[in-house]
Each structure stands twice: as C-alpha cells, then as structure tokens.
Design a binder for these strands. Sequence first.
RNA 1: CGGGGUGUAGCGCAGUUGGCAGCGCACCGCGUUUGGGACGCGGGGGUCGGCGGUUCAAGUCCGCCCACCCCGACCA
Length: 577
Amino acid sequence: MHFSRLFSQTLRETPSEAEVVSHQLLVRAGFIRQLGAGIFSYLPLAYRVINKIMTIMREEMNALDGQEILMPVVQPADIWKETGRFYQIGSEMGRFTDKNGHDMVLAMTHEEVVADLVRGTIRSYRQLPALIYHLQTKWRDDPRPRAGLIRVREFIMLDSYSLDADWAGLDRQYSAHYEAYFRIFKRCGLSTVAVRSDTGMMGGKEAHEYMYLTPIGEDSLLFCDACGYSANRQVASMHKPLPEQEDSLPLEMVATPGASSIEELAAFLDVPAAKTAKAVFFMGHFSAENGGHEALIFAVVRGDMEVNETKVANLMKAGDLRPATDEEIRASGAVPGYASPVGLKGVKVVVDDLVPRSPNMVAGANLAGYHLRNVNYGRDFSADLVADISAVRDGDGCPQCGAPLRLARGVEVGNIFKLGTRYSDALHCNFLDENGNNQPVIMGSYGIGVGRLLACVAEEHNDDRGLVWPAAIAPYPVHMVVLPGREMDTGVIAASVEAALTAAGLEPLVDDREESAGVKFNDADLIGLPMRLTISERAFKQGGVEMKLRASAESHVIPLDQVVTAVRSTIDLLSQV
RNA sequence: CGGGGUGUAGCGCAGUUGGCAGCGCACCGCGUUUGGGACGCGGGGGUCGGCGGUUCAAGUCCGCCCACCCCGACCA
C-alpha cells in the first residue's frame, strides 16, 4: 500500500473531545472516525487490525472445534419475549417496528437466536457437544458511551455458544474457553486477568470476566496477593472479623438531635461506626415472572460498611435497583435519617450477616431525632434475609486467606458465562438422551469485544510519539520511508524492496509522499508499525536500507539482498508469543 | 435521567460595544528545500449546530430545540 493512496489522514493536533490516550492516538493516526456518540467508522488501518484480531479469534475457536456461523443483527422480538428479556431489559435495547407493525430488536447479544437455532437443529445427544461462534455487530444503547472505542454503542463482538448434554460437558467447554481466551489476548499483546463476576442480564450459574488492568477502567476489582483470590467488586466477598461478644443490654432510646448520618451519630454518641447499624433503602423492580412491580427493599449493614447493590439485587431477585426517595421511605413507616428495622412491618428487610453477630448496636428509632441503643438481632428485630450484602473495600480481608485485598481498576475485554438451561428452558431446546428422555440443552456463552480489545492494546502499547503495535496485529508489518536522493533515484530501490517484501507475504506501507523527512518519520512513529525501513541515499551509501524497530531507538543498515530475510526473521521473532 | 461544559472551514482555535467571518495547521498550484512536523508567492474551502424572536443590522442579545464531551445514576 502506498501512503499517498491510503484512505486516511493523520492529524497534527488532537481532537479536543478525545481524553484517553488510545482514543487520541487512534484518531490522530487516522485509524478511526467518530460518526456519533459511541458510533465509529473503522478506516483501513483499523480494519486491518480488526481483521488480524478476528483471524486469531477464528484460529483459537476452530482449535476448540468451534464452527463459525453468522446470525442476524435485526431480530423479531418474539424470541426475546419468549425468554422475557424483551421486558427485563430497558432502554439499552434498540427496538423498532417493521412496516407491518411487528416488534423488532437490534441484537445486543445472540442467546435467543442460538436457542432458536438449537431447537430447530438439535434432536439427539449424538449431536452434542457442539460449539458455534460468530463475529457480528451488536447494538447496546449504553447510557454513557465514552473513552473512544473503550465503551461504545455499536461494536463487533466475538461470541461463542457451547451446547452440551450434561453439566460435565459444560464444565469442559467452559474450561476450554477460559484458556483459549487467555491465548487470544496474549497473542494480541494484551495481558489480562480473569476475575469472578456477576452474571447480570445473562443469568446463569458462574461467570468470569477478563480484565485489562488500567486506571481508566470503570470496573473495580479486588485481588489477594497472598492466595490469588480475585473478583469483581460486584461479587467480591470478604473475611469479616467476628465482633467482640458481650451480654445483651436493655434497649434504650436516646435523643440524637441532628445526627442523621453515621458519622454524626458516631461522633454524637462517641461510639465507633462499627457499633452502629446503617439503613439503606432501595426500590427494586421485579419482572413479570416475579410479580411485575416495584417494592421497597430495606438493607441493613454495619455502620462502617457500604451496601453492595448488586448483591442485594441478586438476593432479592430484583431486575433493577434504585435509591428510594424520602417519600417512599416514609410510606413504609420509617423515618429517613433515623430509620431502623426495629418495629417495622410489611417491608422486605435484608440484613448483612455481620449484623446478627454484632451485639448492642445503635440503630434508628424511626422517630426523628432519636436512636436506639443496645439493639440486638433476634431479640429486637429480625430480617427476611440474612446474607452478605457488604461492599468490599481496599484493604478488607481476603475471604479465602484473610490477607488484605488490593483494589484495582480494569476494563472488561471479555467474559464467559455458564448459562445452564435458562434459554433452553425458555425456548424449549430439548434433545433425547441415551434413554429416550427429553433433556434441555445445557448452554454456555462467551464473548470478546473486538474494538474494545483493539483500543486496550492501543492504550497499553504507545509512547509519547504514537502507537506501538504488537507485530501480530499491526495493520502492516513494515513502514517504508522513502526519501529522495540528490544524485540517485531512491524510488527504484524502494520499488524493488516493496516488490520483494510483497512477494514474500510481508506487505509494506510505503510512504511515497512528497513530504519532508521529518513529516514522514513522525507519521511513521504515530501510526506505529513494528518496523521501519528507510530507503535513502544516505542508507544506500552505507550499504543498503536502514532498519529500525518502532519499540527501539537503535537502527542498522541491511544490505539490499538481505532485506527480505532480515525483515522476515525479525517480524517472526516479534510475532512470537 | 440529573449536574457541568462545548458547538465558528477537515483539525486546533480567535472573533471587542451588535456593524465586511478570521488565524494556525491541513488541502490545491508554482518555485526553492530534502534524515525528525521546511520556506516564499498565489489559491480553494463557512447554513457561525438548528428554528424562532429583538434590531436598520445578529457569530455576538433573548427563547426553544439538537448534537457532542465530562461527572454522576445506569450498564455485560
């Protein structure tokens, strides 16, 4: 490819809307252009990277005996109504009606279509196990797209779906994906960690997320450096030291004027926050199968802890959780700022498992300006549910070994789910087992955001001059900078080098523009191909062409008749993982 | 959805009290230059986000709307 023909444009100045470095560089280097919020076009440079990433994905999926298919982006809403997700999922789903007035859906993911395929295809245990995958566009109307390609609304995803006759089969395919996904990321030059995660809208049993650790990430993760425990904060648990046990003291009411927060209360009564109970109210939205209504949820944690909303939502089987308004709290009989579960009727109460073990706590009196001392679980109140609903913080104890957990930020580049029979049950994907009995197909689903992966690689591999692509996914292996000579025609040498490299399967990007050397070198650094070959009179007089790696400052001259061999061996070396 | 910000040429920006719509980069032509973002001369490019209002006159003042960015809520 000749640079003068490349459909692209490098920019000297960073567009003001780009904040994270991957976004800035991908736009400046002419890889992507934004069309709308979270909607991007991939120009040739980016699409070549995308294709190389997708090739790696296909190789790894095929190695698991996966078979590539292609499922539709536009889908009739009927199958989404069958699984209930048409109603569960909110504004994030793209919906419209076709000319006949039928509800249609833009694919956010493809479990429903897979299940529809399976019920029309799989009849016998002899057809299982199976693995199908595709690389297809998804539309998720994210409330807040940001950070360039990191968080978008339209994106290409690798998603694969495992189909098994039994749970052991699912475990095998899940493990195979667990390893294959690490290989994909590694081959793309991105190091990731897998953490336990929430199953969210997918439902199902077990899930892991693959996280690229970076301060710009929006997910909070907890790691134990002692034993290796790792989890997304949404599901992370902790070791909770048992509070000192004391005899129950008589309940007493104390005036606490103006002390409506834990800090004020603890200061006013001169007790540690750990001796108080914190009341948090949510309105939970319950889907049709669970009643189809909103209901108040009263969560209680110890005063020195925070509520983990994901845990509460999962426990209560609420599809959605939002903070309750003061009016909604009052309607339950509780008093905002002075609320407690003592004496409340008709409200769903969920209590953190540390609270029943904490004696003589301070809790609200449900009376403005008053609290209760010496509240004891069991004697003074009880809950509908006692479970772990605390949010883990940096430094809290590891649930496995007790060592302090470390909090880090990350971007989720992939995830794997054990779906089980949720979709097979809903869409009646049954097969006949060896004994002639109907059984639901057991499914898993696995996904990687291709553009997000590209963006994370760009985020990780750059310097102050521009991008530094890993050789395995670089748009071209070689950037040829051709500089005109005074006494000789360097274009002739460039043409022969280009032809030789192309014939060897090492297609170069040839900067044939009439630009100054500085412009060409700077653009080469900005675009970040792994190797630069400079064809110039100076290099020719030194015996050939100059070779320099993007990731290194050193360069040396290669004789013309050895260029192909040298480029190949170097690129091969760089491509190894 | 709430809070904040920004919309003027492809990109970055200026535009005073309301009075001819500009600068740098990029782009086109000619010439000089040629190993780290060269120089001279000459050019092309605008629904000043949109609609409405005030005014002799609106990029500028007023109202409504839209888009994009950031923070939060939310989210795989």
